[in-house]
Design a protein around this nucleic acid. Structure first.
Ligand SMILES: [Mn+2]
Ligand SMILES: [Mn+2]
Ligand SMILES: [Mn+2]
Ligand SMILES: [Mn+2]
Lengths: 222, 222
DNA sequence: AAATATTTTTAGGCTTGTCTAAAAATAAAA
DNA sequence: TTTTATTTTTAGACAAGCCTAAAAATATTT
């Protein structure tokens, strides 16, 4: 049916549009896209014209861009592959959760539906990646989750880490040092009104999390 | 140290030069390279100039090309990655030996030494790929093997399949149907002088292999 | 050795994906 | 409602990889 050729660059732009719209629904502006891609606004405009020609986005000059049905499908599948490979790298090859993103950034572009599905089976059809992000299924369906930003926890409440909003190696490594991997349990002892820092108990020992850390942590309240 | 950027296209050309020189030592000619790459001679010449600028080949106009030390290192590492991924696809994901080449052709370009080494460990540091081809180690060292072309077998001799000289899905599937996977044992009952076809015994049953099949099969004589 | 055939290179062109600088459109401020 | 600032697009360039057609070099025949 649909045998049009999509380049890796086009895939990456589609994914970037998806990610921006995910956080901030509505039309994605050129500058935001260029920033996400690390390219100039002129390059983003160029690409938007190409993607529009291929009917992968709906683009209105000066007004921003949205993914079309086809574009959304491609972006979703790319994210699926990215996250499946991340699970493979962590679960099977023993990488740490802060080491896998760049590899997955390459592996997500490997073509071949059969490969994706066999990989999915091999790693046990995971629903979440090593950072707690949901993995869409082969039909592009997302699993809805109830997770709360750690900063909304009240004193005395306990939670289990279910995700992070910052995927940088620096943040992930820092969490690791604190014993805060995915699935770790912590209790909010006290939140300082002045700077929104949080005194927490993690297993046996105590720690203080800055507002920045608290903002980037998701938990399931126990 | 050596932080020059090599594109996937350049890697593929280097590998092609390596493969041609492997079968037919000496300088590789432009037409042979173009044929191997499925491009025009003009494109091959273009690429040879680029590779020469980057000191990855020693290229003399009209005389042919040879890999430099650096070029050889890159080609060898690419073949290493290609074959390691093939083992992964067959051993871990359950693909057949005729299904993996195209995936490996993509996966071989994934960058990251750590990934290659962890993959190698994960699949048990294999010395040969699913087609019986040797896998160079991380230092680029090749294991020398003694394998014989099936056609040199004399009547009454038995052998174990150790490799194939034709990697096309068609040939590999045909071998599979005959029960002739890697490691399969067969006995040459009789060779017909007229057309070099071979009557063989494979386990319990008999078969006739054409000269073409015989030419593309390698065995270790028992 | 000259003519012919083959191989290889050059010339010129095209697409993709990037850039910088300038122009145009939109939004914000005075 | 002008003026100013910001955002976005256009214009023009460039490198990588590919192509076809023509020219040049090399090899083979006669
Ligand atoms: Mn990631
Ligand atoms: Mn990517
Ligand atoms: Mn390849
Ligand atoms: Mn192989």
């Amino acid at each position: 049916m649909n045998a049009l050729l999509i380049t890796s660059a086009e895939e990456n732009y589609l994914k970037a549009i998806f990610k921006i719209a995910e956080k901030d629904p509505g039309a994605v502006l050129t500058n935001a896209l260029a920033a996400e891609m690390g390219t100039s606004a002129a390059s983003a405009t160029d690409m938007l014209k190409r993607l529009s020609d291929k009917k992968l986005v709906v683009y209105e000059k000066y007004r921003g861009v949205k993914l079309s049905e086809a574009g959304n499908r491609i972006a979703t599948n790319l994210i699926r592959k990215h996250r499946l490979w991340e699970v493979f790298l962590v679960d099977k090859l023993g990488f740490a959760w802060d080491e896998v993103h760049d590899f997955a950034e390459q592996l997500e572009h490997i073509q071949g539906e059969q490969l994706t599905e066999r990989l999915d089976d091999f790693i046990g059809n995971p629903r979440f990646d090593p950072h707690g992000d949901p993995i869409p299924d082969a039909q592009g369906k997302w699993l809805r989750r109830t997770q709360t930003r750690f900063l909304t926890l009240a004193s005395g409440q306990r939670g289990i880490i279910t995700g992070v909003d910052d995927h940088s190696p620096g943040f992930l490594q820092y969490l690791g040092e604190l014993g805060l991997g995915l699935g770790a349990e912590l209790e909010l002892l006290e939140r300082t009104a002045y700077d929104q820092s949080s005194k927490v108990r993690i297993g046996a020992h105590h720690a203080v999390l800055s507002e920045k850390v608290g903002q980037n942590l998701f938990v399931r309240i126990l």
